[in-house]
Design a protein around this nucleic acid. Structure first.
Lengths: 153, 153
DNA sequence: TTGTTTGCGCGATAAATCGGCGTGCTGGTC
DNA sequence: GACCAGCACGCCGATTTATCGCGCAAACAA
């Protein structure tokens, strides 16, 4: 069943503040609290909303640096891929990893405490994962736009 | 004032579920509800926590495709940069944009309804922004890891 | 028309939040 | 060693919030 206008407006409200109360959402979307509560539960049960996260200031948590790192593997056997992806899962400083098209196989988003730490993550962890052939780093200088939102309306 | 162990555990709890009630957080971090509520408010006031967002299934919202797009500008005058960044802010399909080091100036994260839509965003919007010289697209094939979390513990 | 389905609002109840108050620990001073 | 101030905790009562059952109205099919 597709999302109707009310569902989309509920999601839009949550994208501004996911800790907003049901009553506040209800007022914004011109509905009473009961249907909002029920729709919210349905959106969660259907997997449209998979959870809720705080937006954090990475600098204030001690991670002022972040980079995108592109990685190439020597081969694409199951063993190499599984070992690589396992190592990625275990590394807490890798906050995202995508398999991508193009000249590189993976694009990682990595966060670090400082340059030395970033260097350590790259040189002592990532390049040493068996099967890794090539690593290219792109340092983030400035966040021009970070919208945690998808277009819903 | 630095974050102590309790603050970090509160943030860790919120990273799992930011709509968790104060009482639930309190139980997890072995504190009563009152100090948790006060610490939470302080973390928000201090800007450590800047807001709360739902985690959404982009596919179920009609955006099954996403890509990283790297962009080079012809020049780096204020006028060109301001116009480019303004256009990025106005484009709802650009969910993130960073100024970066390396051979390209910007790295964008873009989401789209389908290939035709992605093509339209790239060819009809991004390459037509005045001052844009070069555009390289990297399509995301698979999300290996997407942790909305920073390491806090 | 009649029966069925779907989704709304209302009201009640259990839970959560918020503010005030008292207590215990710690560090500094005399 | 005694005392005081500052800080952060827990408890408690008042208000707000979430959720559930119920009845009602609109949309649709037979």
């Amino acid at each position: 069943m597709p999302l109707d206008r009310f569902d989309r407006r509920i999601i839009a409200a949550l994208q501004e503040d996911a800790r907003m109360t049901v009553a506040q959402i209800a007022e914004r979307v011109s509905l009473s609290a009961t249907p909002v509560s029920r729709r919210l539960k349905k959106l969660e049960d259907d997997g449209v909303i998979t959870g809720y996260s705080p937006r954090l200031d990475a600098r204030k948590l001690g991670f002022p640096l972040d980079a995108y790192i592109m990685i190439n593997l020597q081969a694409h056997s199951d063993e190499i891929i599984d070992r690589f992806e396992g190592a990625i899962q275990d590394n807490p400083y890798v906050i995202a990893c995508h398999a991508v098209t193009g000249e590189m196989d993976y694009l990682l988003h990595v966060t670090a405490r400082d340059m030395e730490h970033m260097s350590e993550i790259t040189l002592k962890t990532l390049v040493r994962i068996p099967g890794v052939r090539d690593v290219k780093s792109i340092l983030v200088l400035e966040n021009v736009k970070t919208s945690p939102a998808l277009p819903v309306e």
